[in-house]
Design a protein around this nucleic acid. Structure first.
Length: 408
RNA sequence: GUGAGCGUAGCUCAACUGGUCAGAGCACCAGACUGUGGAUCUGGGGGUUGGGGGUUCGAGUCCCCUCGCUCACCCCA
C-alpha cells in the first residue's frame, strides 16, 4: 500500500455506520441529561496551557507527558484539551454563571499516549459537571446518573467502585503516613513503585505487583476528618436507598489532582486492559484554584469509544427512501426536476450523477439500500407517470408525480 | 518511554525446507440481458509482496536497519 497520507497515530475515521451508533448514544444521553436538569455546553478545543497545568496538576502524567501543546502565532502556549472539566469550569467563571448549575457536554479530547485497545490519542467523552453543590446528595445523584446512562446504552454487567480521598488536608496527612510505611519496605518494592514512592504514593497501593503484598498498609479511611467521613457515609446511604450496588476500593485513586472526597469508576468486561467506561468524582477545590470563590462541584466523564467497544455496538448507515433511475436525456432532465421537488417535500432520494446504463443505475440503487426505485424513461414520459419499483419484492406500479408526492 | 506480536491486491487470506509464487475468494468495472438491481456465467482493471540495505546463481520466504499496525506495561475515559 502506497498511500501518501495516513491517519495520525491514535486517531480514527468515524465512518457512516459508526456515526449512526454515536448519534444514537448521544440522543439517548441527551434525553436523560435533560431529565436530570442538565444544560449543554461546548467549550473550545484548545485553551491556554496554564489552565490545564493548574487544574489537572503539574505532577500528573497527563500534564507531564500527554498533552498536545503548541505555540500559536502570537507566541502563546496553547493545549488541545486533555479532559473536559477544566474548560467547563473556566467557562462557568468567565460567563458568570450562578451556582448551582448543571452542565453536560459531548466533546473530543486529546492525549499523547501509546494507543492500545480502548485507548486513543483523540477520543470522545460525554461528561457532566454539577457546579455549586456540596451536599452528598449531589455526589450520589451524579453516580446514579452515570449508572442510568450506562444502563440506557445497554450495559448489563457493571461494577461500581468508589472511595473517598477526603480533603486536601486529609490526603496530605494520609500521604505522610503512607510514605513512612512504604519507606520501611522500600527494598521490597518494584522499580516503578520506588520511583512513585514520593511522587505518588497512593498509586503504589494500586500496583499490580506490590499492591497485594501491602495488605497491612494504612487505610485512607482512618485518616479522613470526621466531616469527610460523614460526607462519604451520606453518599453511601443514598446509594443504598436507591439499591445501587457498589464496592468500596480504598486504593482507588484518580490521575487528576483536582479530586476531593468521593471518587468512583464504573468498570466492565470486553475492554481489554482498559476496563473503565465512566469515571469521576468530587472536586471541591478546583473553582477556587482557577480564580473563583470556594465552590464545591462534582462530575464524571465516560469514554464513547469504550462504550461502543464494550457493547459491540453497530448500526446501519442511512439509506435513501428512493433512488431515481432514468433512460434517455429527456427522462434525466425530468428526473433532475423531480428529485428537487421530492427533497423539498422532505423525502430522502438520490440518483446517479453520472449518466450510466440502466443496469448500472439499478446496481447503484441496490447498493444504496433504497426502499424504492423510481424508473423514468420514454414510456413514463409519454404517459406522464413514473414507475415505482419495490426493491424488496420487485413489484412495480405506475404513479403520477402528484400521487408520488402525496405518498411521501 | 518500555516490551511482545504482526506487515502479500480495496478486504480476508494462499504460495512445502529460499527455485514459473506473485495467486484465490470477496469487492469493483464491463458483457451475456440494446428499459431494470440483489442469482449465475464470461472477461477486465488493480500488487515495485510496508520501505531501504545485505546474503545468494536466485528472496514474500534468511539477516540488518527503518516505518507502520496491534496488544500489553505505565497511565487513563
Amino acid at each position: 500500500m502506497a498511500l501518501k497520507y495516513k491517519r495520525i497515530k491514535g486517531t480514527r475515521d468515524i465512518l457512516p455506520a459508526e456515526s449512526e451508533v454515536r448519534e444514537q448514544l448521544w440522543q439517548k444521553a441527551r434525553k436523560i441529561l435533560l431529565r436530570y436538569g442538565y444544560g449543554f455546553i461546548t467549550t473550545p478545543t484548545f485553551e491556554a496551557t496554564e489552565l490545564f497545568v493548574r487544574s489537572v496538576g503539574e505532577a500528573t502524567d497527563i500534564v507531564e507527558k500527554e498533552m498536545y501543546t503548541f505555540t500559536d502565532r502570537g507566541g502563546r502556549s496553547l493545549t488541545l484539551r486533555p479532559e473536559g472539566t477544566a474548560g467547563v469550569v473556566r467557562a462557568y467563571l468567565e460567563n458568570h454563571m450562578i451556582p448551582p448549575v448543571k452542565l453536560a457536554y459531548y466533546e473530543n479530547v486529546f492525549r499523547a499516549e501509546r494507543p492500545q485497545k480502548g485507548r486513543l490519542r483523540e477520543f470522545w467523552q460525554i461528561g457532566v459537571e454539577f457546579i455549586g453543590a456540596g451536599d452528598p446528595l449531589a455526589d450520589a445523584e451524579t453516580i446514579e446518573l452515570g449508572l442510568t446512562l450506562l444502563k440506557e446504552f445497554g450495559f448489563k454487567e457493571l461494577k461500581l467502585e468508589l472511595n473517598s480521598i477526603g480533603t486536601v488536608e486529609d490526603r496530605q496527612r494520609y500521604r505522610n503516613v503512607l510514605i513512612e510505611y512504604l519507606e520501611k519496605r522500600k527494598d521490597e518494592l518494584c522499580e516503578d513503585c520506588q520511583r512513585r514512592l514520593y511522587r505518588n504514593p497512593l498509586r503504589v497501593l494500586d500496583c499490580k505487583i506490590d499492591g497485594p503484598k501491602l495488605k497491612d498498609a494504612p487505610n485512607i479511611m482512618d485518616y479522613l476528618s470526621e466531616d469527610s467521613k460523614r460526607h462519604f457515609e451520606k453518599v453511601l446511604e443514598y446509594l443504598e436507598l436507591w439499591g445501587i450496588d457498589y464496592e468500596i476500593n480504598n486504593r482507588l485513586v484518580r490521575g487528576l489532582d483536582y479530586y476531593t472526597h468521593t471518587v468512583f469508576e464504573f468498570k466492565t468486561a470486553g475492554l481489554g486492559a482498559q476496563n473503565t467506561v465512566l469515571a469521576g468524582g468530587r472536586y471541591d477545590g478546583l473553582v477556587e484554584e482557577l480564580g473563583g470563590p470556594p465552590t464545591p462541584a462534582v462530575g464524571f466523564a465516560l469514554g464513547v469509544e469504550r462504550v461502543i467497544i464494550a457493547l459491540n455496538l453497530d448500526a446501519q448507515p442511512p439509506k435513501p427512501e428512493y433512488f431515481i433511475v432514468t433512460h434517455g436525456d429527456e427522462a434525466r432532465k425530468f428526473a433532475v426536476e423531480l428529485i428537487r421537488q421530492l427533497r423539498a417535500e422532505g423525502i430522502s432520494v438520490d440518483m446517479s450523477h453520472n449518466p450510466k446504463s440502466m443496469k448500472a443505475q439499478m446496481k447503484l440503487a441496490n447498493r444504496t439500500g433504497a426502499r424504492y426505485t423510481i424508473i423514468i424513461g420514454e414510456d413514463e414520459l409519454s404517459s406522464q407517470k413514473v414507475k415505482i419499483r419495490d426493491m424488496e419484492s420487485g413489484e412495480e406500479k405506475l404513479l403520477s408525480v402528484g400521487e408520488l408526492l402525496k405518498l411521501g
